[in-house]
């Protein structure tokens, strides 16, 4: 990863009184990737995002976005959907979006044009003149999403974008995120919906009690937190295969565990060499949600984190 990161966070800390909200967190987000920020409630995600957006100032550490510290001018290049939803309730939707576009530095004509485009993309054009308060909750969330999207920002920071949406709108949000990514935008996504993280994201950072506990490629994290076992349904007795340390019978199938020197590839080669009839061969990967729960439980004491594929233990 040689390109300049879109987000570079170095040893960031922030306390509220005696409560440490974020402690010595470092990570980066690469151009064009969809990056997940994970953590249980109260882990420090919102504080971290606010420091990223220069809404809250850190006690120590540095934040760089798009190659420099965040300032007023840079904010126009970032689209932010906060978890705390809020809109000017009495403002007409179109007027509100134009206001956001103007704050991002566009002139009146440009702001109108951008507003029309984003309203059409999110299928809310007929509601442009309606007041926010007249819209349903889901529609209001779409408007909030539009305030982040307007002006095609280079970095999108989306905090719980799918909360409260119906499946049709969830699909629409996913499509828009994919479109923005294809257009070159980078996305930082904070969500508790682990299936969405698995579907959409490349890498993830997980914090707990303000500290980094997981960080890296999502596939790699999942592999690392899996025991590399496979589920096989075959006519041969796989317990006799070399490198197999144990088997568990599971509803007609067999779950196979390996010694540290062996793995699924060796078993596959053995099955092929013995001309086995194989009905099922499935690599068991622990879902991200299970990893999340396990890490949170484990990191009540020591915090474990993975950096660029290696595993380290911090105290």
């Amino acid at each position: 990863m040689s390109a300049t990161p879109v987000v570079r966070v170095n040893s960031l800390s922030k306390s509220y009184g005696t409560f440490p909200a974020v402690q010595d967190v470092s990570f980066d987000v690469q151009p064009g990737e969809v990056f997940a920020l994970l953590g249980p409630n109260g882990a420090g995600k919102t504080t971290l995002i606010r420091m990223l957006m220069d809404i809250t100032r850190p006690d120590s550490g540095t934040v760089e976005v798009l190659g420099r510290p965040v300032d007023g001018a840079l904010k126009a290049r970032i689209g932010y959907l906060p978890e705390e939803r809020g809109l000017y309730k009495r403002s007409p939707v179109g007027e509100l979006l134009e206001y956001y576009a103007r704050l991002k530095g566009h002139d009146a004509a440009g702001a109108r044009k951008l507003t029309t485009a984003v309203l059409e993309r999110l299928e809310l054009a007929p509601w442009a003149k309606k007041k926010v308060t007249d819209l349903s909750k889901g529609m209001q969330q779409k408007v909030q999403f539009m305030t982040a999207l307007i002006g095609s920002p280079e970095l999108l920071v989306l905090d719980e974008p799918f909360t409260g949406l119906d499946p049709v709108n969830v699909r629409m949000f996913e499509e828009v995120i994919a479109e923005r990514r294809a257009a070159g935008a980078t996305v930082l996504l904070s969500t508790h919906q682990m299936n969405k993280v698995e579907e959409l994201c490349d890498r993830a950072l997980m914090i707990h009690r303000g500290r980094r506990v997981l960080y890296g490629q999502i596939r790699q994290l999942m592999r690392e937190h899996s025991d590399d076992s496979v589920v096989v349904r075959t006519n041969l007795d796989v317990s006799r295969a070399p490198g197999v340390s144990g088997v568990e019978k599971d509803n007609g199938s067999v779950r196979v565990h390996f010694t540290t020197e062996s793995g699924p590839n060796e078993l596959l080669a053995w099955l092929a060499a013995n001309r086995a009839e194989v009905e099922e061969f499935r690599h068991m990967i622990t879902p991200l949600e299970d990893i999340f729960v396990r890490v949170v439980a484990e990191s009540g004491g020591a915090a474990r984190s993975t950096v660029e594929g290696s595993t380290e233990v911090r105290r």
């Binding site: 606010r50 957006m53 220069d54 809404i55 300032d71 007023g72 904010k75 126009a76 970032i78 932010y80 959907l81 906060p82 705390e84 809020g86 956001y100 704050l103 991002k104 909030q144 305030t147 982040a148 920071v157």
Partner: peptide, 9 residues
């Protein structure tokens, strides 16, 4: 305010 403060100082 949070979404406004993301755009202005």
């Amino acid at each position: 305010l949070e979404s406004i403060l993301a755009l202005v100082t």
